[in-house]
């Protein structure tokens, strides 16, 4: 179901828990499907002994992908026109993540309606791990 401009206001928010207790196995799934086999994300020995991290951590793109799930659940399938993020903090196994979209602007261009969103994904400590923006086509 697509969003309708008439039912939206600037400042409206939509939130979803995108993962609870993130598993290392999910990092392996993402490595396998995306083709990013960087051992930082799946190889505990390399991540700790060579790269100096406390453990393996999530691909930024996994967090972006999970954040995108919140967005498409909100704006509807195939409605996004752009989506961009900055990765501000590592996401670790065991993390719980919540993603929020906040309406920044509603606009009309060439007879089409769009919503501009501020996007934020936070961990269980309230720290922002991903911040960004997205826009989507909406109904009148």
């Amino acid at each position: 179901m697509a969003l309708s401009a008439i039912q939206l206001s600037v400042g409206d928010t939509y939130s979803e828990v995108i993962v609870e207790d993130l598993k290392r196995t999910q990092l392996v799934q993402y490595a396998g499907v995306s083709g990013d086999y960087n051992p930082l994300h799946s190889d505990e020995v390399f991540a700790t002994q060579v790269a100096g991290y406390p453990t393996v951590f999530a691909h930024g793109m996994l967090t972006m992908g999970m954040t995108g799930k919140m967005l498409t659940n909100y704006v509807g399938d195939g409605r996004l026109t752009n989506f961009g993020v900055r990765f501000s903090k590592q996401v670790w196994p065991g993390d719980d993540l919540t993603s929020t979209a906040t309406i920044k602007e509603l606009r009309e261009e060439g007879g089409e309606h769009f919503v501009d969103l501020v996007v934020s994904t936070k961990n269980q400590k309230g720290e922002e791990v991903v911040s960004g923006t997205a826009s989507a086509r909406i109904d009148a």
Partner: peptide, 17 residues
């Protein structure tokens, strides 16, 4: 520098599905 290359930002513009 092995293992210290990280992804800082990613932006997409969608023209069609």
């Amino acid at each position: 520098g092995s293992g210290r290359g990280l992804h800082a930002e990613q932006h997409y513009e969608y023209h069609r599905n």
